[in-house]
Amino acid sequence: MKTIEAIIAERAGAWLKLDGVVGIYEGIAADGAPVIRVAVTKETPALAARISTEAGGYRVEVVVTGPIEPM
């Protein structure tokens, strides 16, 4: 199984092209398992259909962070 970092590196480019996706990062779920988090501006059916719930053996969670900008 590839590292979660490698999976993020593989998938980030494609996911960031999806309208509404602003970032992808590695986190830890409440149960302690490593997860891939996909940061989105808002949850939409279109995004839900395009983002898988699993990638490379790792769980994928969608997080509604809103737009990301320089602060």
Partner: peptide, 10 residues
Amino acid sequence: SGINGAFSIQ
């Protein structure tokens, strides 16, 4: 809360 983040910033 996260590492290895990939982002595109305007």
